[in-house]
Design a protein around this nucleic acid. Structure first.
Lengths: 225, 225
DNA sequence: CTCAGTATTTACTTTTATCGCACAAAATGT
DNA sequence: ACATTTTGTGCGATAAAAGTAAATACTGAG
């Protein structure tokens, strides 16, 4: 597939700049890119013009607010893409489906879909948060991370199965099933998320887990590189 | 200053894609960029290769995790830490709280929290920009820099008080209070930021200024190295 | 299943934007 | 003041991208 050299180098430059805590000088950037300094200057000028990078007083290159402006749109876009998939998951499992993301030590609901039939439903508010080490969503995210010595049994079990199941951890009577969303089969540090369902104790866990895992795989494909 | 056309178009493409909640098709992208579809395909291929964008099942272009990976590096500790602190500040002052950063001659909103009660709130979009010498946020940032001969009276006053107050400078009817974030009590060249609140004219400036100054101190401690 | 219409990729020619040398300017050190 | 390093900028040669068109995949309708 045809790619554009100049654009590709510009993106490399961004990543190089992002990788250094305190930025890089143009000369270093040029060296890392394997190009002449003049090219690095032009790349830097272009990126700076668009606020993707900015320069310190000392002339060092650092990321600019432009990257934030872009990143803030990532969540909303993912939510829109995810909504039909979640609705489908909710309908097939007759349970409330959700996508959660890690946010520090907590886990936050990014997107939720409720089943449109059934007498009672479990509600889950978008934006609500809970500790990441409790509840199916959080456990699934932890299970998607690389193994740590102090992983709880629940996390280990979840990693083994490919999904987590919790009963009454966040709410007595509620059962949750969740699976990590793993682009490239691995967790990307900047995007730690899981998809799952929550319902009352009559949830058919076997059916739900299959559906949830399939859904996690589908969602991962949107985030694949 | 020399900029690179291809890279510039790529960045434009990113911004166009980011601007549309539900992504864009290649044809639309080509039109918006004012280029042939074949070029749009090559740009998209390059951006996708680097995971800055990805494609939905329908072929629409949406942002990819790459933008998150970049944004994650923008003040790594600060943003995570900032949100709860800002929310707290917003709640305690019943005003919209923000962190702003200097970006060249402008001042950009890095992070915003709105109070969860109150009839009306003042909105402040993340990423929005205004001249650095206007508005409480910008004045506070200038006040955090070392003294300059051509500092305005507002900046001098702000430096003396430890916070800035502006009324209606950016928006008639809005009152802003802000204080610079000073790691080590000094402004770090690579991170010039301020924290503050904005509300309507009923803002209790005395209470707000105390809270904002305390918040600036708290945030500064997280940016210390 | 075929076909029309659309989306995507490919092949190839033309054009021009990019490259990289070389040089200017500024900053830094001696 | 002079040397030296660092930062920034014209300019012609050329590789890279643009542009055109045509081939190939894909979609859904009938």
């Amino acid at each position: 597939m045809a790619t554009l050299q100049t654009l590709d180098r510009g993106i490399s430059a961004l990543q190089i700049i992002a990788a250094r805590r305190d930025g890089v000088g143009v000369a270093t950037l040029a060296e890392e890119l394997g190009v002449d300094r003049a090219i690095a200057y032009r790349i830097a000028a272009t990126l700076e013009e668009r606020a993707l990078i900015s320069r310190t007083a000392g002339g060092r290159l650092i990321l600019g607010v432009g990257v934030l402006e872009l990143a803030t749109q990532f969540g909303p876009q993912l939510r829109i893409i995810a909504q039909p998939i979640l609705s489908d998951l909710a309908r097939r499992t007759s349970a409330t489906a959700f996508i959660s993301v890690a946010s520090g030590e907590e886990c936050a609901a990014l997107s939720v879909a409720e089943p449109d039939e059934g007498l009672l439903r479990v509600g889950y508010r978008v934006g609500s948060r809970h500790p990441i080490d409790r509840g199916a969503a959080g456990i699934a995210i932890l299970a998607g991370r690389k193994e740590l010595p102090d992983d709880s049994d629940a996390v280990k079990e979840s990693r083994r199965l490919g999904f987590s199941v919790t009963r009454g951890e966040l709410q007595p009577g509620a059962v949750g099933v969740a699976s990590p969303i793993l682009p490239d089969g691995r967790q990307v540090a900047s995007f730690e998320a899981s998809v799952g369902v929550v319902a009352m104790e009559d949830l058919d866990v076997d059916t739900a887990s299959v559906a949830v895992v399939a859904c996690a795989k589908e969602l991962a494909s949107f985030v694949n590189r």
